[in-house]
Design a protein around this nucleic acid. Structure first.
Lengths: 204, 204
DNA sequence: ACGATCTGATACGCTTGGGTGTCAAATGAG
DNA sequence: CTCATTTGACACCCAAGCGTATCAGATCGT
């Protein structure tokens, strides 16, 4: 309880603590995004972050807790970039949103892997499903007020597109798709329009 | 080296050995398909199979080896059902093939999880990617002789459809899609045709 | 019935990783 | 300079899981 709080290395106690937490998050992104969550231990994280175990438990109490924090950091960043792009698209052009999303998922294979694979396993399942749900609800923000049989079909297409995005990102990172980033974006815009022919509720 | 080989429990030595191997494979499908490969140990497999560790090492030398065998068994069964259905479709109707595939992936959530999640992690990555490649090449069997820019775009759509299939199966098993199996099949046939507008090279 | 073999249960040694503790060196306040 | 605080390196105990070994009961051939 004695908060001595003095400056060390030019930083206050809170600053040092936050900086260590950020290093742990960065180490988690690196290792979780390459080896996979299940293959990473606390010792690995500390080695990658250049810290000792004491400072791991300073911010987190388990590997799963760190994994959740990393996942939320990644998805929050992504949402923060995509949502304004959706608004910029004016509700009828999916390209800005797709561009924003793919700039995150194509630029960093670790992000792609976290979203497409790790978010479906172990302690991240509920958070991964939650993110998928958020994305699908976002999708429905474009085309509301559907009912009955078509509502289910539309929802299916939302999940279909989400899965398509993930798989394409993984395949592209694996090098099996010989396309530029812009080509991938163009093609996925095409996929979007193919999946939602009634998409832009503008002049129909 | 002394192969005594005598009958026990009404089975020959080879029969008993095969039966134990099958029980291990079944236990692997159950546990890998529910908890995930990374969360399963040899002891768990043996408990599920009702065997002791000695008989695990009789057929496999590690958890990863069992996981590969389970994955290959599942995918081989699937291929054995899908390929004839492709032929039955005559190269222009995707419905039989999709029906065959989804009868496997929708009837058994463990199969869906193995294909969509576990096949991308750990020791199964190469085999999972190999299966995806097989599926994509199968896709190209329908629409050959494309070249240049369109070849990449078509390949992207193949991976997109594969990802769509996986994600829809997972979502359906999670109960977020309130559709019957037949409705899912119908809708995915629609997704297929949407992704491949030039699909049936019949009377265009 | 008897002996050899097959099986299941259990135990043991070993390694790995989590969680905690100790101690000396580095740093900053007075 | 002196001393309290902060930090890093290292040691330690413990639980879990792997791989192997042991042993009694069950089963089969003769």
């Amino acid at each position: 309880m004695t908060e001595s709080t003095r400056v060390y290395g030019g930083m206050s106690a809170a600053e040092r603590r936050d900086e260590r937490r950020q290093r742990l998050l960065a180490a988690g992104l690196e290792l979780f995004g390459t080896r996979g969550v299940a293959a990473v231990g606390i010792v690995d994280i500390c080695a990658e972050a250049g810290l000792i175990k004491r400072y791991f438990y300073e911010s987190f109490s388990s590997i799963d807790e760190l994994a959740v924090a990393v996942f939320e950091q990644v998805t929050d960043r992504l949402v923060a970039q995509v949502v304004p792009a959706i608004i910029a698209g004016g509700g009828h052009d999916p390209r800005p949103a797709l561009t924003a999303y793919l700039q995150g998922a194509l630029a960093d294979p670790r992000v792609a892997r976290l979203l497409a694979v790790e978010g479906k396993t172990g302690a991240l399942t509920e958070y991964g499903n939650g993110f998928a749900t958020r994305a699908v609800e976002l999708w429905f923000g474009f085309s509301p007020a559907v009912e009955g049989r078509d509502e289910g079909a539309l929802r299916l297409r939302a999940y279909a597109f989400a899965g398509a995005l993930s798989q394409v990102c993984l395949a592209w990172h694996d090098g099996v798709l010989d396309l530029t980033v812009d080509q991938v974006i163009d093609d996925l815009v095409g996929v979007f329009h193919a999946l939602v022919p009634e998409a832009p509720r503008q002049a129909r």
